[in-house]
Measured scan of single mutants.
Amino acid sequence: EEWMVEKALMVRTGLGARQIESYRQGAWIEGVHFKRVSPSGESTLRGTTWYNYPEINKFIR
């Protein structure tokens, strides 16, 4: 699984929702560690946020 939603990321990493938000707003790079995608497939600020687990795992190492 490369891309996953927040709940799956929480299960895989043990991070809480606030921790994920903090990383997203600070250290993680949009387009690398996470992306927002609307149902139409376009990038957007209001779409579902998807997280790239392999890239996040590399960051944590």
Rank of each mutant, 00 (worst) to 15 (best):
N57K: 14
G16N: 15
A17K: 14
R12N: 06
S43N: 11
V32S: 03
W3H: 00
F34C: 02
Q25P: 02
R12W: 07
A27Q: 11
K35Q: 07
E30F: 04
E55Q: 07
S38I: 13
E2M: 08
N52G: 01
S38C: 10
G14W: 03
E6H: 06
I56C: 03
Y23R: 02
E2L: 08
E42R: 07
Y53V: 06
W50K: 04
L9Q: 00
T49L: 15
R18Y: 09
W50T: 04
K7Y: 12
E42W: 04
W50N: 03
K7D: 14
R24L: 14
A8L: 12
V5E: 15
G31I: 03
W50R: 04
G14P: 02
S43P: 12
V11F: 11
F34H: 03
E1M: 08
R46E: 15
R61C: 11
V37N: 07
R36Y: 15
A27H: 10
G26P: 01
A17W: 10
R61K: 14
E30R: 04
G41L: 07
K7T: 13
E42G: 11
V5L: 15
R18I: 10
E6N: 03
V37Y: 08
L9W: 02
S40H: 11
P39S: 12
A27K: 07
F34M: 03
L9K: 01
Q25N: 14
I29N: 04
W50E: 05
Y51H: 01
K35E: 04
K58E: 10
M4L: 11
I60M: 13
E55S: 05
L15T: 01
F59E: 03
W28D: 00
N52M: 02
Y51A: 00
V11W: 10
I56L: 02
A27E: 11
W3L: 01
N57P: 01
L15H: 01
E21Y: 08
T44A: 12
N52E: 02
R12V: 10
K7Q: 12
W3Q: 01
A27F: 11
Y53C: 03
G47I: 11
V37M: 10
Y51S: 01
I56Q: 00
Q19P: 02
V37S: 10
G41V: 08
Y53P: 00
G14A: 04
F59I: 05
W28C: 02
V5S: 15
E42C: 08
G31N: 07
Y23V: 02
Y53N: 02
H33S: 00
V11K: 13
G41Q: 08
E21M: 08
T13H: 02
V37G: 09
G14Y: 03
R18D: 15
R18V: 11
P54I: 14
E55T: 05
S43Y: 04
E21R: 11
G31V: 03
L45H: 12
E1Y: 09
L45G: 14
R12H: 10
V32L: 09
S40M: 11
H33G: 00
V11L: 14
N57S: 13
A27L: 10
R12D: 02
E55Y: 03
N57Y: 13
T13Y: 02
T13Q: 02
V32P: 02
G41Y: 07
A17L: 09
E6G: 06
K35F: 06
Y51R: 00
F34K: 02
S22K: 13
V11S: 10
G47K: 08
V32G: 01
R36T: 15
V32Y: 05
E42F: 06
G47H: 10
E30C: 04
W50D: 02
G47V: 13
K58C: 06
T48D: 12
S43T: 11
G47L: 09
G26T: 14
K58V: 06
R61I: 14
T48S: 07
V32H: 05
V37I: 12
W50Q: 05
R24S: 08
G26E: 11
H33I: 01
W50L: 15
I29F: 05
R36H: 15
G47F: 12
R36A: 08
Y53L: 13
P39G: 12
I56K: 00
E42Q: 10
E55C: 05
R12E: 05
T49N: 06
G16L: 13
G14E: 04
R46T: 14
M4S: 01
G16W: 05
R36D: 12
K58D: 08
I29H: 05
I29Y: 04
W50C: 13
